[in-house]
């Protein structure tokens, strides 16, 4: 969901590319209504691309037509967006190559003064 915001970096800067990532799985209660709600908010192609980079290849390449009522699909989506957490790593802007570091599960999006 995050995007590069370095001054002048306006194109081709989403999704940020994840590198050197350590993942963590944590169980969470499944809520179908929430997942249906999220279907309209997710940039699905970016999600799939990012998952593939992390060797998570369970998501179908295209969003199923019956996504909202496809239990199997919702299960996968639940696991990916609610149960998979990035513990550490970095996010690299595909355009300007700026590195955003993730530490303790917290991405740092702060920029130096000359980058703002």
């Amino acid at each position: 969901m995050l995007q590069c915001h370095v001054k002048g970096c306006n194109a081709n800067n989403f999704p940020l590319e994840l590198q050197e990532v350590v993942l963590e799985q944590e169980e969470a209660e499944m809520n179908e209504d929430f997942l249906r709600n999220m279907l309209t908010k997710i940039e699905y192609d970016a999600l799939v691309a990012t998952c593939l980079k992390l060797d998570i290849n369970d998501l179908p390449a295209a969003i199923p037509a019956d996504a909202a009522y496809n239990d199997e699909f919702l299960q996968i989506l639940h696991r990916v967006i609610l149960e998979t957490h990035i513990k550490s790593g970095k996010m690299v802007c595909p355009n300007c190559q700026h590195n955003y570091i993730i530490r303790d599960g917290i991405p740092n999006m702060l920029l130096a003064e000359h980058e703002v």
Partner: peptide
């Protein structure tokens, strides 16, 4: 993050100035 864990609430935290990095995606 610690408080979220302690109270069993899941939260995604971002270290940033106000909402920098969230736009225009969100």
């Amino acid at each position: 993050q610690g408080t979220a864990k302690q109270n069993k609430v899941s939260v995604d935290i971002i270290e940033t100035h106000l909402v920098s990095g969230l736009l225009p995606r969100l």
